[in-house]
Design a protein around this nucleic acid. Structure first.
Length: 823
DNA sequence: GAGTTTGAAACT
DNA sequence: CAGTTTCAAACTC
């Protein structure tokens, strides 16, 4: 007893020491790590502890000795740990409740497969990386490949994968260093790359990816690479690839992938299909990317350069060898590819990757973290234990850990939103919108448009997403690297939509601009100092979205963390004014005038401000004027003085030519937006039925409505009438494009946003003119229903009829619980 | 970037 | 409901 116990204790001590060492190293890598480390450590310790008992035979002094001395030993332990880690992971995911979990698991499987497969890109990439860093080491490595190691990784089974991944991450890190991924210009990454799902992949292991493709399909992937280099074109290529190659690849690859993991993978494959795999691929790579990202981040953060490298090399080399082995096992392609990639593409790839990572870093921190995080953890835990050397890796993992981000944006995970929603978002005027939503729908969301957060996570694995991926490549939307969420966005974007709408603006620049500027609704930023962002003064709050990074607000409570407060405040405000969060501008068709009889009706502008403005000095010619800001003409409701609103004067005089333009524009747009708007308007109008639609921004997590709204299925298909604000909420996240606009009056151009006001809604409905099909469908009769209640501030309010329309609309749309419990 | 203007939101 | 204050965006320099 005593002897054994002692031994055990010794081992533990050793382990602890090791861990502590690792922890130190990791700490060096990054500050954050510390916290993470703790997390990581715990599992490891457990593992170790567990391990000790398990391998009592190992406890023998010899074992201790080995532990102390041989790195090999460490590796084993690492593997072992990994296994444990995987187990531990299970718990982790729960912590970060993210839809990803499942996906992640899936991804894992893939990973494993991938890892196991020598042919896998990762290996290749690793090699490539190694090569770069080590200068030719690659060759040596390849040559020197040791079967043992390869076995350990690939064959060993479940454990193996972890280690490899870990190694991969390491490699990635090294790569990053060697490559000198700077935090430098995001521009390096072409938006196109980002857009495409491929990007992440590339990012993760551009090189690796290619090889696979070559081997498998041969064409498509290669293209991707090329494209990556080229950037913009990527999308197209992707499409092609995705369309054909991917599947083929997947299919082909399936075997490879599967081969490791028996059951799950196959099931997966079947279930999700080829695309899914692709997706997984992506996810896997994403993880890798994360590693990179982390690395880069740490590097950037610290020095801006990537010098960390360190000591890990020995371990790395071994790892490399393993990878090399894997490659060797692979056919020529791997080598050649690697060589190709590394040599030629490296820079490009690297750049791409770096860019990607950068983007990832910023935006994805939160969301990505989830998926990747785990991965890291797994890897990290495993690796950390096993790999002492890699401070980097450990650090990386740890960095990832910061769940905090996750917490911050809990919402990100929105209830599933239909792809269509995504598409909607995407479609929303181009770029303006935030694509994230899509993410949300899919998985998580993203929030910050303007800034930054994105979710990558993709992994949620929703098939839909995956499916969309290939198709999505649509050229239309390119998200600027920075802005975009790498994968997800593209993915989510519905293929169909792309064409129609927004493709126009697609220019990344624009989007970016918007994002940067915050023009996009999603991008809104506030600068509140005293309101704590809990009053309508706050644009974000008013728009129904949480404040995000770009916001310069102080003492902000409009964050997911303070969800309760936000909701409470919101309720309070709504109790005062049920429509407080409703879109200020309601799109109406010309018909409005008819019903309302407002002077405004004369104005061509189909939209009107719900309450009207009260301008006295601006002449309704500046953004001070909400009407003007919303791109709508003033109406009877307005109490403005000296109205000169270009979009339509209060007195009925039409605005300038602009108005006409607006009309035309609107008409064109109406189809697109009208539904949404209508819906919103409906919602607004019926406070009862639904919460006033808060305009949610896509980019950010919309505030969740207390009620079921979140859960409600997105209604919307674009076509569907119902997509509405409600939908947004429902989406939980402002999914719908319409929402997009709604949120705020601020439009890049006045026209865009047209929202129907409550009051005006009837007009729209009435207005025969309104072309909007959505509307029609919504209200067949267009009759106005008497408003449930009130009018809003507009005594003038036109009309009773409007409400009726509401009812109609409502019918078409599922009623939402109103935010305010009692209107 | 700081300061001013403006009008909505909030308060009384 | 009207008047006043507060607030933050829009605007100007």
């Amino acid at each position: 007893m005593s002897t054994e116990e002692e031994k055990v204790s010794l081992e533990r001590e050793n382990v602890v020491e090791k861990e502590s060492e690792e922890g130190r190293k990791s700490v060096k890598g990054g500050g954050v790590k510390g916290g993470v480390v703790v997390v990581m450590d715990t599992p490891e310790r457990k593992k170790n502890q567990i391990a000790t008992p398990i391998s009592k035979f190992e406890e023998s002094p010899v074992f201790n000795f080995l532990n102390n001395l041989s790195p090999i030993k460490l590796d084993k332990s690492a593997h072992f740990t990994q296994t444990l880690n995987s187990l531990s992971f299970a718990s982790i995911p729960s912590v970060f409740t993210s839809p990803h979990v499942s996906s992640i698991r899936e991804s894992r499987f893939l990973r494993r497969h991938l890892l196991s497969d020598p042919s896998k890109p990762e290996f290749a990439s690793d090699n490539g990386v190694k090569v770069d860093t080590d200068e030719g080491m690659l060759d040596a490595v390849n040559n020197s490949i040791e079967p043992k190691e390869s076995f350990g990784c690939g064959i060993s089974g479940g454990e193996a994968p972890a280690s490899p991944s870990h190694e991969c991450s390491k490699l990635a890190v090294e790569l990053a260093r060697s490559l000198n991924y700077e935090c430098s210009s995001p521009s390096t990454l072409p938006t196109g790359g980002i857009r495409g799902k491929s990007l992440p992949e590339f990012a993760g292991t551009s090189v690796t990816y290619v090889p696979l493709v070559q081997e498998i399909s041969g064409k498509g992937l290669l293209r991707c690479e090329v494209n990556m280099d080229g950037t913009n074109e990527i999308v197209q290529d992707k499409e092609e690839a995705s369309g054909c190659d991917w599947e083929s690849l997947i299919t082909d690859a399936t075997d490879l992938l599967i081969f490791d993991s028996p059951g799950d993978p196959e099931a997966f494959t079947k279930a999700s299909g080829a695309n899914f795999r692709t997706f997984e691929y992506v996810s896997n790579e994403m993880q890798n990317v994360q590693h990179f990202t982390q690395v880069s981040t740490s590097e950037c953060g610290g020095d801006g350069s990537e010098t960390e490298k360190p000591s890990t090399q020995p371990g790395e080399e071994s790892q490399l060898k393993e990878y090399a082995d894997a490659e060797n096992t692979k056919p020529d392609a791997s080598l050649t590819n690697d060589g190709m990639c590394v040599g030629q593409s490296e820079k490009n790839d690297n750049e791409m990757v770096s860019a990607l990572y950068r983007g990832m870093r910023r935006r994805c921190l939160v969301f990505e973290m989830v998926g990747p995080r785990r991965k890291h953890i797994d890897e990290g835990s495993g690796s950390s234990a096993a790999q002492e050397a890699d401070g980097n890796v450990a650090s990386n993992d740890k960095q990832l850990v910061p769940s905090k981000t996750v917490n911050e944006y809990p919402r990100c995970t929105l209830p599933g939103i239909g792809l269509h929603l995504n598409s909607l978002t995407a479609s929303s005027k181009d770029g303006k919108v935030v694509k994230q939503e899509a993410n949300a729908s899919g998985k998580q969301l993203v929030i910050a448009s303007g800034s930054s957060i994105t979710l990558h996570s993709s992994v949620t694995g929703q098939e839909s997403l995956v499916k969309s991926l290939p198709e999505t490549s649509r050229g239309g939307e390119i998200v600027p690297f920075e802005n975009s969420l790498p994968l997800m966005e593209d993915v989510f974007q519905a293929p169909g939509y792309v064409n129609s709408e927004e493709s126009n603006q697609t220019s990344p620049k624009k989007k970016r601009r918007r994002l940067e500027t915050g023009e996009g609704e999603s991008c809104k930023r506030c600068n509140c100092k005293k309101s704590k962002c809990l009053k309508l003064y706050c644009e974000c709050f008013a728009a129904g979205v949480y404040c995000v990074e770009p916001c310069a607000c102080q003492d902000c409570f409009n964050k997911p963390i303070h969800e309760d407060t936000v909701l409470a405040t919101r309720k309070q405000i709504e109790s005062r004014n049920p429509l407080a969060f409703a879109p200020k501008v309601i799109r109406t068709t010309d018909s409005l005038s008819e019903t309302t009889g407002d002077d405004s009706s004369k104005t061509p502008a189909s939209a009107r401000h719900k309450r009207g403005c009260n301008c006295k000095k601006s002449g309704c010619l500046k953004k001070y004027c909400e009407c003007y800001q919303g791109g709508v003409g003033c109406s009877i409701n307005c109490r403005c003085e000296g109205c000169k609103n270009a979009f339509g004067r209060k007195d009925g005089t039409d605005g300038d030519a602009e108005e006409e333009e607006t009309d035309a524009y609107e008409k064109s747009i109406v189809d697109r937006t009208s539904h949404k708007n209508l819906v919103q308007s409906d919602v607004e109008q019926n406070p009862d039925s639904g919460p006033p639609a808060t305009p949610l921004n896509f980019g950010r997590p919309p505030m969740q409505l207390p009620f079921s709204l979140k859960n409600k299925p997105p209604r919307s298909s674009f076509l569907s009438i119902g997509s509405s604000s409600g939908g947004i909420y429902a989406a939980g996240q402002g999914v719908g494009r319409a929402n997009f606009f709604q949120p705020q009056p601020k439009f890049d151009k006045p026209f865009e946003s047209v929202q129907v006001q409550e009051d005006e809604m009837p007009e729209i409905l009435q207005g025969t003119k309104s072309p909007v099909s959505g509307i029609k469908t919504a209200s067949p009769n267009r009759k106005r229903v008497s408003p449930p209640h009130c009018n809003y501030g507009n005594s003038h309010s036109h009309s009773p009829g409007r409400r009726s329309s509401r009812k109609l609309i409502l019918q078409s749309i599922p009623s939402f619980p109103s935010l305010t419990p009692n209107p």
